[in-house]
């Protein structure tokens, strides 16, 4: 078993690995929660435009206290700044950008992902439903959809399944899954293990993944957090 890292270190490791999905020149939508953290690790030499579905193309850094503008927030309702060269738009235009497949990449959180790329990340039956927000639109719009999440749930049960048990956010929409233990691609042949984190064996990952895994011939080591 791998050494148990603390939660913050695991989140940072996943966020840093997710950053590697971003290429210079990309337009990217980052979901609420852990995906938002990815912005902190974007390499300064990459030119990236972050889209916020509430109508901002070009999210900047967090404001200093004296810069806070109550009219300027991200989709997580946090106060932000706009980057140099940013553009504002209304919500229908913002989702036209998304639905029209103008975004290169979306990085979102997940509760369950199935081997065919089905994603569930918005509701748990029996619990109060808060709403899907923009997730159902975003999963169909981006050229590439990457899900970042823990490999197993807090009970240690797999979150990467043959079929999602929870109601779906989107059908066959996921391209890549990045977890604290592995990176997997949804391919026509099935779910392919392409990277594995230090301290885990392929057999361990197989046990922790309900979906059938194809092991890549060029299996890589996942970069560790530091």
């Amino acid at each position: 078993m791998a050494v148990q890292k603390d939660k913050a270190a695991i989140r940072e490791m996943i966020a840093r690995r997710a950053e590697q999905e971003i290429e210079s020149g990309y337009y990217v939508n980052l979901g609420i929660g852990m995906p938002t953290m990815v912005a902190n690790y974007i390499h300064p030499e990459k030119e990236v435009v972050l889209q916020s579905e509430n109508g901002l193309l070009g999210i900047g850094r967090s404001p200093y206290e004296h810069e806070v503008d109550p009219d300027l927030i991200n989709a997580g309702k946090e106060t932000v700044t706009a980057s140099v060269g940013a553009a504002y738009c209304d919500s229908s235009e913002s989702f036209a950008m998304i639905r029209g497949e103008h975004l290169d990449l979306a990085i979102l959180g997940g509760m369950e992902v199935a081997e065919n790329g089905d994603l569930a990340n918005w509701m748990i039956p029996g619990k109060m439903i808060k709403g899907m927000g923009g997730a159902m639109d975003i999963v169909h719009g981006s050229k590439k959809v990457v899900i970042i999440m823990d490999h197993v749930n807090k009970h240690g049960d797999p979150k990467i399944l043959k079929e999602c048990k929870l109601p779906l956010t989107g059908k066959g929409v996921v391209d890549r899954i990045i977890t604290d233990r592995a990176v997997m691609d949804v391919t026509d042949e099935g779910l392919k293990l392409v990277e594995i984190a230090e301290g885990w064996t392929v057999d361990e990952i197989k046990t922790q993944t309900e979906a059938e895994l194809i092991i890549s011939d060029e299996l890589l080591k996942m970069p560790s957090s530091k």
Binding site: S94, I98, M132
Partner: peptide
Amino acid sequence: LTPQGTLAEKIR
């Protein structure tokens, strides 16, 4: 509950 982009487009 309506997906946000769908809601925006329904109104548009």
